[in-house]
Amino acid sequence: MAVAQAERVLKSRWRTASLAAGWAFPGDWQLREVDEVCAAMVDTIDPDDALIRLGRARAEAGAGLGETLLDLAALHAVLDGGGGMVAPDVDALPARMLRLTASGWADVLTEEAVDRGAEDPLTGLATRGYLRTRLGELYREPVAPDEGYALVLVALDLTRATGWSRVVAMTLLSDVLRVVFDGGETLATIGPSVAVVLTRRDASLAQRISTLRVLAADRLAVDPHVRPTGPAKVWSEHLPATHQDACALITALAR
């Protein structure tokens, strides 16, 4: 079997086993780092760096540690189980495989904790941690923010973009957000391909969402390298009744 075909077969069986084990969001399973791990396993080269990058990528995409390790167990079961049915078992993971992936995942959370009040260095938008802090301030006010605020989400499809074009696409999107929401709203990046605006719900919100959709499409269409990331998906979400639920919503939307 050719190397490229073997990698495709491994990835397909890994994905099938992971979804069967309970991976919650089939659409976000595929990452560039998945391909890197498959290549390392098929080519029998040292997979250490690829596993660390996979752990980081899963954390950045919003996957929890338990979900990440169950996905890793699905890979291990496929590698260890031949061509038949497999049963992923986190407890059966080799210690080194588990440690490297978990280490990569934990590195992202450590960095987020350090940068909790900082801006994202690439887009200039606030971090997810800052957004949580801002939401906490709102939920401590006498009037609950779910009555007067909303979240406006913008998501790009980065699966068809590579290298710096992924960064450029998010940078262009952040510029559009600043144009449309220029009244002191909180603008944040909450995932590799998702940005959010915490804004008041008022009579102009629907028009601003429409304007955001049009300007984002225009800006992405200018550069042929970032055009495949569009059209941007733009929508709004009501805030839930509690700060805890709001933070859970942000985590889910980041994916």
Results as ranks from 00 to 15, higher is better:
residue 52 I to K: 13
residue 29 W to A: 05
residue 46 D to N: 14
residue 27 G to P: 04
residue 103 S to R: 15
residue 230 G to A: 03
residue 246 A to N: 12
residue 246 A to S: 14
residue 248 A to I: 03
residue 76 H to F: 06
residue 21 A to N: 15
residue 5 Q to M: 05
residue 170 M to C: 08
residue 21 A to D: 13
residue 150 A to E: 05
residue 189 T to H: 05
residue 29 W to P: 02
residue 68 T to R: 12
residue 33 E to P: 02
residue 67 E to L: 12
residue 237 E to S: 01
residue 226 V to D: 07
residue 245 D to P: 04
residue 100 L to R: 14
residue 92 A to F: 02
residue 112 E to S: 07
residue 202 D to T: 00
residue 62 G to E: 06
residue 46 D to K: 09
residue 195 A to K: 14
residue 223 D to L: 12
residue 99 R to Q: 10
residue 154 V to C: 12
residue 69 L to A: 07
residue 10 L to P: 01
residue 93 L to K: 14
residue 215 L to G: 02
residue 32 R to F: 11
residue 245 D to M: 12
residue 111 E to D: 13
residue 209 I to F: 03
residue 226 V to R: 15
residue 189 T to Y: 03
residue 61 A to V: 12
residue 231 P to M: 14
residue 18 S to Q: 02
residue 113 A to M: 02
residue 88 P to F: 12
residue 143 V to R: 15
residue 134 R to W: 11
residue 24 A to Q: 15
residue 61 A to D: 09
residue 203 A to H: 06
residue 129 G to C: 08
residue 180 V to W: 09
residue 2 A to F: 10
residue 245 D to N: 11
residue 129 G to I: 07
residue 62 G to M: 11
residue 205 L to M: 00
residue 64 G to S: 13
residue 6 A to G: 04
residue 155 A to C: 10
residue 174 S to I: 05
residue 65 L to E: 15
residue 245 D to E: 13
residue 72 L to G: 07
residue 235 W to Y: 05
residue 84 G to M: 08
residue 119 E to I: 06
residue 83 G to H: 13
residue 33 E to R: 08
residue 97 M to R: 13
residue 33 E to W: 06
residue 19 L to S: 07
residue 123 T to W: 01
residue 193 S to V: 04
residue 124 G to F: 00
residue 247 C to K: 14
residue 10 L to W: 06
residue 70 L to E: 12
residue 54 L to F: 09
residue 144 A to V: 07
residue 40 A to Y: 01
residue 145 P to V: 04
residue 226 V to E: 08
residue 221 A to D: 11
residue 20 A to N: 05
residue 147 E to I: 00
residue 240 P to V: 03
residue 178 R to W: 01
residue 2 A to T: 02
residue 234 V to N: 01
residue 10 L to A: 10
residue 199 T to Y: 11
residue 74 A to Q: 10
residue 140 R to K: 09
residue 121 P to Q: 08
residue 128 R to T: 04
residue 31 L to Y: 03
residue 39 A to L: 08
residue 116 R to Q: 03
